[in-house]
Design a protein around this nucleic acid. Structure first.
Length: 443
RNA sequence: GGUCCCAUCGUCCAGGGGUCUAGGACACAGCCCUUUCAAGGCUGCGACGCGGGUUCGAAUCCCGCUGGGACCGCCA
């Protein structure tokens, strides 16, 4: 039988990191099993649901690389895929229960009557056996069992009810969702029983916690996937990082792409313990993906950040800029950082704002003014030749390479750290290097 | 308060009765490389929450405790 997974967000906010995690695992299992991944919009909260949020959630998923086979935008055989468009179905099913005496009306609402003594235990794919009885479905007040509202007074179905109806009619085989839903499952099971429907398999995922071990929220910093994009994280990295929260390939493999993850993924290897979101690890993973990118892809990623910094990106050839980024190697953990660390290839202006004359020792000036003209006169403008020339000179004069290399670095980049200075100089070109040295009177 | 879930280095994961003086990754510290930083290489620091069982043997199984968490809406 074909497996069918679904991600069912409510359009009441942007795609949250937790939602992305859930969507990701559904996607992984769907792709691993060659099944279908369905996107269903749970917009039954009339107050808070908006089309804008629906759009951002979808583009957030696309950004992460989670494509769906059926959904409100692409359609499918089990539509419509917005709950607000399935109202007649919910009403019809609820009325059937009412007619059978399993539910009752309360004003305009339809409420399911919870009976005691119903066995509601289930085998979770991740958590294994979860034992519950309907007797546990109480409210905060001692005494009577809390009945389950099916249809609200405004005509909309409630979450616990709509989910059951939809998962059944959409023939969902695996419900993969956050652990916070584990205590909702018995209620839903009760409804499956009432309808006489076969429930899907449930697989609950561990929660993602903040550094303080509390449920991840705004006060932990970024939470929507777009904030990560804007901070300079790549979708592949966020995907990779999220996949590692609650799951591991079992081998020592930690850096992978979507395809590798999908083929390696096993629901049976999902963890039960809530995982703390560790920004350091994300940074590391992002750095790994960043340095593995193809030069031109990398350039396309960095360009927007350079432009945002006001740098004249268009004044240079792509080949030059891509070469600059290649020279940068693994420096910078995010696209934003890499862009900031490499601004001097794009323009001399930022160098000027950082350069501090006081950083060049007075006693070195004479030697520097003697050295740089020699360097600029090097006939073969390559990193190797420049370095050889510098080494020879430094050796003859009996001075320290460090003093000369660091001054050159500071003048060319305005920074104390950079790739090898001679490589930077070689890439910038003789004329550019001459101009920068001239500017500070070092020639 | 009730119901349910969880418990291995600071963090993410391995390990699910003997191969565990518990393995990897991130972070951290040191060393090497070196004109700086990053990368890379090497080394170090660092955990089975506690108490009872079961067993020849328990990080692994059972019970209790403690500590976390989730849910108990006509929110999803």
């Amino acid at each position: 039988m074909e497996t069918r997974m679904r991600f069912a967000p409510s359009p009441t906010g942007a795609l949250h990191i937790g939602g992305g995690h859930t969507a990701l695992f559904n996607w992984l299992w769907a792709r691993h099993t060659g099944g279908k991944f369905v996107l269903r919009i749970e917009d039954t909260d009339r107050e808070r649901s908006t089309q804008e949020y629906e759009d951002t959630i979808m583009s957030g998923m696309k950004w992460l690389g989670l494509d769906w086979d059926e959904g409100p935008d692409v359609g499918g055989d089990y539509g419509p895929y917005r709950q607000s468009q399935r109202l007649p179905l919910y009403r019809q099913c609820a009325e059937k229960l009412a007619a059978e005496g399993q539910a009752y009306r309360e004003g305009d609402a339809i409420v399911f009557k919870v009976l005691p003594g119903v066995e509601l235990s289930f085998d979770d794919v991740v958590y294994s056996r979860v034992e519950t009885m309907s007797d546990g479905l109480k409210g905060r007040e001692p005494g009577e069992l809390k009945d389950i509202v099916l249809i609200k007074s405004d005509g909309m179905p409630t979450y616990n009810y709509a989910v059951v109806v939809d998962d059944h009619f959409m023939e969902i085989t695996h419900v993969i969702r956050g652990e916070d839903h584990i205590s909702n499952t018995p209620k839903q099971l009760l409804l499956y029983k009432a309808f006489g429907w076969q429930p899907p398999l449930f697989a609950h995922l561990p929660m993602i916690l903040g550094k303080d071990k509390k449920k991840l929220s705004k006060r932990h910093g970024a939470t929507s996937v777009y904030e990560f994009r804007d901070m300079g994280y790549m979708p592949d990295s966020v995907f990779n990082f999220l996949a590692l929260l609650g799951w591991s390939a079992g081998q020592d493999k930690e850096i992978f792409d979507r395809q590798e993850a999908a083929s390696l993924f096993e629901l049976s290897r999902v963890t039960r313990k809530a995982a703390v979101f560790d920004p350091d690890k994300l940074n590391f993973i992002n750095q790994e993906h960043l340095r593995r990118m193809e030069p031109m892809t990398r350039l396309a990623l960095i360009k927007p950040f350079w432009r945002e910094m006001g740098l004249p990106v268009e004044e240079h050839k792509d080949e030059y800029l891509a070469a600059a980024l290649t020279l940068m190697g693994g420096r910078g953990q995010t696209a934003r950082e890499l862009a900031a660390f490499s601004d001097y290839y794009v323009s001399f202006e930022p160098v000027k704002t950082r350069w501090n004359a006081g950083e060049v020792a007075e006693e070195l000036l004479a030697g520097l003014r003697e050295f740089f003209p020699v360097l600029l006169a090097e006939p073969h403008w390559t990193a190797e030749k420049l370095e050889t020339r510098a080494r020879t000179w430094v050796e003859e004069k009996g001075v320290k390479m460090k003093d000369y290399a660091m001054t050159l670095r500071l003048t060319l980049t305005g920074m104390k750290v950079s790739p090898g200075v001679f490589e930077v100089a070689a890439l910038l070109g003789r004329e550019e290097v001459r101009q920068r040295l001239d500017f500070y009177g070092l020639t």
